[in-house]
Computed example of a mutant assay.
Amino acid sequence: MHSYAPHDFSELARLAPAGFSAVLRVRRGRAAHIENCYAQSWRDTYARKSYFLRDPAIGWALSHDGVACWDSLAARDPNGVIADAQAHGLCHGITAATGDAETRSFCGLARADRPFTAAERDLALAIIARLHAGAPGAIELTAAQREALRLMASGERHARAAGIIGISASALKARLKSARAALGARTTAEAVHAAQMRGMI
């Protein structure tokens, strides 16, 4: 599916028991890979409130290398993203970022129990640097999977989308399921977003 080492993501999960989100090799507004392991309630809130556009940690990550504690970014957070994250149990967070002016990779990591140690911050940066330096990994979707995702992105319901392309609703659902698996997405909405971020649909 992709060439990123699963143990790197496992190591990030161990570092961040409250969750993490790694966005790898962003170029021209598109990511080669996104690994989001935050709780679904936070993911839903983040999407519903369009925090991606206003998150001070992402703004910082797009123009800095290193590690920033979320508390240090609070002055850049007029929309209350960090306070909302804390209300969702992401009490102590960091963002690790690396790259150059054309291609960036970054990862937000959170804990509920205590701040990250200096060694943990260094390890997070080393992992994101390793992931950034690695091959971007090709995620392949078939033409049929891309078509199914495009129809979902346009707001079609399963039955109507299946009728448009001349297949059964169960066949459409099978295509969407395989597309979710290829993209590492839990839901069709996440798969649509991931495919859009990669320029696949």
Rank of each mutant, 00 (worst) to 15 (best):
Ile167Pro: 01
Ile127Gly: 08
His88Asn: 13
Ala133Glu: 14
Arg160Asp: 14
Ile167Gln: 12
Thr95Tyr: 00
Ala83Met: 05
Glu120Val: 00
Gly93Trp: 03
Ile94Trp: 08
Leu131Ala: 13
Ala148Met: 06
Ala96Gly: 09
Ile167His: 13
Arg130Phe: 04
Glu156Asp: 14
Ala126Glu: 12
Ala119Lys: 12
Ala159Asp: 11
Leu131Gln: 13
Glu147Trp: 01
Gly155His: 06
Gly155Trp: 05
Arg104Lys: 07
Ser168Gln: 06
Ala126Phe: 02
Ala138Met: 12
His92Pro: 01
Gln86Leu: 08
Ile165Val: 15
Pro115Cys: 09
Thr103Val: 15
Gly163Pro: 02
Leu90Asp: 13
His132Gly: 05
Arg146Ser: 09
Ala153Val: 03
Gln86Arg: 15
Glu102Trp: 04
Glu140Leu: 02
His88Phe: 14
His132Phe: 04
Arg130Pro: 05
Glu120Ser: 07
His92Phe: 15
Ile167Ser: 13
Ile165Asn: 01
Arg157Gln: 03
Ala162Leu: 01
Thr95Ile: 05
Leu123Asn: 09
Ala138Tyr: 04
Ile165Trp: 07
Ser105Thr: 08
Ala162Asp: 01
Glu140Ile: 08
Ile165Asp: 04
His132Leu: 05
Ile139Lys: 05
Ala83Phe: 03
Gly134His: 13
Leu151Arg: 07
Ala144Gly: 04
Ala119Glu: 15
Ile94Val: 15
His92Val: 10
His88Leu: 12
Thr103Cys: 14
Ile164His: 10
Thr98Asp: 02
Leu123Asp: 09
Thr95Phe: 01
Gly108Arg: 07
Arg157Thr: 02
Pro115Ala: 14
Gly155Ile: 09
Arg130Ala: 15
Ser105Ile: 06
Leu141Glu: 13
Ala87Val: 04
Pro136Tyr: 05
Ser105Pro: 00
His88Arg: 08
Ala153Asn: 07
Ala148Lys: 04
Thr98Pro: 03
Thr98Asn: 03
Ala112Leu: 14
Gln145Lys: 09
Ala144Ile: 07
Thr103His: 06
Ile164Gln: 11
Gly89Phe: 03
Ala124Cys: 01
Asp100Phe: 01
